[in-house]
Nucleic acid binder design. Sequence first.
DNA 1: CTAGCATTCAATTAATTACTTGAATAGATT
DNA 2: AATCTATTCAAGTAATTAATTGAATGCTAG
Lengths: 225, 225
Amino acid sequence: MRANTFKSDLFSQFARVGKALSNPNRLELLEFLAQGARSVESLANSTSLSVANTSQHLQHLRQAGLVTSQKKGLKVYYSISGDDVIHLLDSLRDVAERHISDVDKIVTTYLTAKDHLDPIPATELLKRVKQDLVTVLDVRPKEEYDAGHVRGAINIPIEELEQHLQQLDPAQEIVAYCRGPHCILAFDAVEQLRKKGFQAHRLEKGYPEWKVAGLPIEKTISTTH
Amino acid sequence: MRANTFKSDLFSQFARVGKALSNPNRLELLEFLAQGARSVESLANSTSLSVANTSQHLQHLRQAGLVTSQKKGLKVYYSISGDDVIHLLDSLRDVAERHISDVDKIVTTYLTAKDHLDPIPATELLKRVKQDLVTVLDVRPKEEYDAGHVRGAINIPIEELEQHLQQLDPAQEIVAYCRGPHCILAFDAVEQLRKKGFQAHRLEKGYPEWKVAGLPIEKTISTTH
DNA sequence: CTAGCATTCAATTAATTACTTGAATAGATT
DNA sequence: AATCTATTCAAGTAATTAATTGAATGCTAG
């Protein structure tokens, strides 16, 4: 029957994308890639995976159409295929957050702060930035910041925050962001900053969402090497 | 390390949703459920699955938060958990369509018509409806039409289309829709109608997308039974 | 053109998943 | 209370998936 094989062929294709999203390690790789292109080795170092295993997962993702790869010199760089993939990941997290009660349990178990630290939406941040009311703080590793960040944001990786507090104006509100709505770095940063007396908030989502919304970004220019 | 178990715990939760989307049969069940609530038996009849197997898949979906169940009399009715799930499914299909070349291959293999039969977007249909320029045709089974349909649409299930052509005004444009952007029913309907000399087009997406966009719908009132 | 490096491939093992079959449960109907 | 009906549970098999290890490939730079 024409209609039935068409249907099952199509659902099998859609399921390939679902399969790619069905492994926690692959989801972590996608979150890293959403920040910018990365080599296999670099990804393996950022996760707890072996290089060979990382490579296999990346190929799985590529076959599902979620990432693309490009060889540059000795290294192979993987990137997210498009903005639609960022939206898909956002949708996935959104559904999980709304309908799986364990997600909320995990967040409240690991984070002491109440009501998720009052996240502020991107549009609101943009407004305050224009009035010069806030310091925007990117707490991701330098590598990710360099690959692209919210325009005007300063970068203090979370591990260095305590040592570099003097870079921050105690009189001005701070809005911290990182990789996405559930990335712990910004949560941690806000907690630390509040303890030190700063007025700190978390950006509702992360850099990838800011970028695909078409909001202003900038990159650290890298010289050819 | 606090951050790492938080992260892997969270990604494991998100992966549960991915897992639920990783099986073609579950995706088909979700597509049916997106049309309206359905009993296990009814879903088993609409698919090629046994009742026990259908039940297991539905439980898998429920554990991932994608569907909810409610017992009414003898039967258990399953429903989509929320609009966010419809968006997730749309996002999934969108990514697959854009980045997996096989998807386009399948569509063009099974469908002779060129450029996917000129789909018209929902906003455009709404405009033409207001000017009374089109007949909106729902070609899904009556059960799905009754559970909810585009306001003003008439229902002729695809198998009955050939016998009921006299219900359609040959002078007016026809826009056909069904379960979603890749549902074959509307493709078939447009093909059939064009052969008979009608000016027919396909609605770009299906009923679930129309509904979650907040566009006007209506339901067939069912008496209690 | 050889040595070194990043990535991929191939083979294996352990774990998970899909589906079938038949029995069990929990409500509704007689 | 006994029976019927829709769904779920439980056990078993076949198939798929994740991760490890070590070898192979394909560039690059000396």
